[in-house]
Nucleic acid binder design. Sequence first.
RNA 1: GGUUCCGUCGUCUAGUGGUCUAGGACGUCUGGUUCUCAUCCAGAAAAUCGCGGGUUCGACUCCCGCCGGAAUCACCA
Length: 485
Amino acid sequence: MKKIITRFAPSPTGYIHIGNVRSAIYPYLAARQSGGTFILRIEDTDQARYVKGATELIMDTLKWLGLEWDEGPEIGGPHAPYFQTERKDLYLEWAKKLIADGRAYADPTDPNTIQSYRDEDNAKKVPYLYRNHRPENSPEWQPGMPIRFKSDPKPRKWHDEVMGNLSAGPEVQDDIVLIKKDGLPTYNFAHIVDDFLMNVNMVARGVEYLSSTPNYLALYEAFGIEQPLLVSLPHILAPQGNKKLGKRDGAKSVTEYRDDGVLPEAMLNYLACLGWNDGTEQEIYTKSELIEKFSLDRIQNSGARYDEVKLLWMNGQWIRKLVDEQGIDAFYERTVSFWPKSAKSYDDSYKKRVLAIIYDRLKTLSDLREMTGYFFEDPKFDIEQLLTNKFVKKLSEQELASLLETVTAKLSSIDDWSEENLKNALNELLKTTGKKPAELFSLIRISVSFAPFSPALDLTLNVLGKEVTMSRLGKVKNALLLDQQ
RNA sequence: GGUUCCGUCGUCUAGUGGUCUAGGACGUCUGGUUCUCAUCCAGAAAAUCGCGGGUUCGACUCCCGCCGGAAUCACCA
């Protein structure tokens, strides 16, 4: 297999969100699969849109997802620097080469004149193409002057690894700007030069670049450089409508999901499989399985709608998978920042016991905050919750009080507070009281937790411990007795 | 408007001429797992394969037209 050398080349204008991270994931997978190179290059040529700190945010996101780069910021590499603003002179040099070859020209036309060309063409209902207004005599280039490509419009055909065979007419090929007035290159030009210098042989980007591709083809031709593999990645669509998912749709940053307790494994799995599959019915893929099974030509060629519900389902699957495979201790390490405040004073071993009985109902790690409070502090006493429960309300308060009396008597007789003993005691209580599990267990469960739900009763009591259990049951019993007076 | 791309259950998708009375997953609904919530298990509903023509013994699959959706037409990327 040919080694894929590819890159993720974001511009530092903000965070990476669900809608644009796939253009990092797929190239990464292709590079790793082939034993090639994954480059991170920061395209910071638009000074107006530059956002301070965005580069760090981007790197943070890639690291979290496990998309480590082989060359780029922080680690450098044979083609450094990896910030385009630091490569400024290079682009000018290459643009001048084109001028020398008669394939580019310095353009002295002022913006107002350009605008009037555009307006005229629009009024005449002809496509605006700058090459129809190309100045006849272009001056010697000097700083402050843009450089434009001298296009050679002709029908072009090319192959896209996702879209297949594509073609476009001369109408889309124009004298694009190579170097801007400010001396910095446009994306259209800079990426061609950088990709060549960095030996990039695969370019993956969103489908919005499809219509610019003929211009890129013309540049490859003008430089006589080999065209890389071209990969167009369809958009991820917003939950509503048919538009691509963007920040305006409230697309959350990838790291926001991290902070909400989504696992990177699940995020990578979900995103990779949104618009790609290996043709089998497998749903859960590890990173190494993705690397092994990935193929460009199985990327879907239409947009895929983002479905957070499925992401959360997948996160639940991954939580259970990690616990099954690596055990509670290893999984616990990932949860440390997600416990409720009240858990702070408890030691790790207690929290691990809680985790062991609650993990299989987590969708995200942050669910721990909502679901485990009663393990760490006495729950808010709410007798109404007990009395309105659909099973418990069948019994009178007097009956409940005497049931709790029986229960506490039985439970207090247990010396070894083990799961086994608790289970047996609960079963015996069912027999001696003659109550249905729904009635008796609901009474106990609510009395000790006042939570909408909890793990299996014997497990819950076991973790709470004898002292806490007896105290909470006693408190409810007293309240019921008091009520009757 | 020009150019270009896309079009299978609500959603993500399998499907490369017959095995498709269209398979899987999420979601929804039903039942089971001694209480709850979740997991897990079993089952159900859910797609006239955008529409219309062709080619063919036979089309979701090939061709043409149409319709619908999207992208792009910057000294932004």
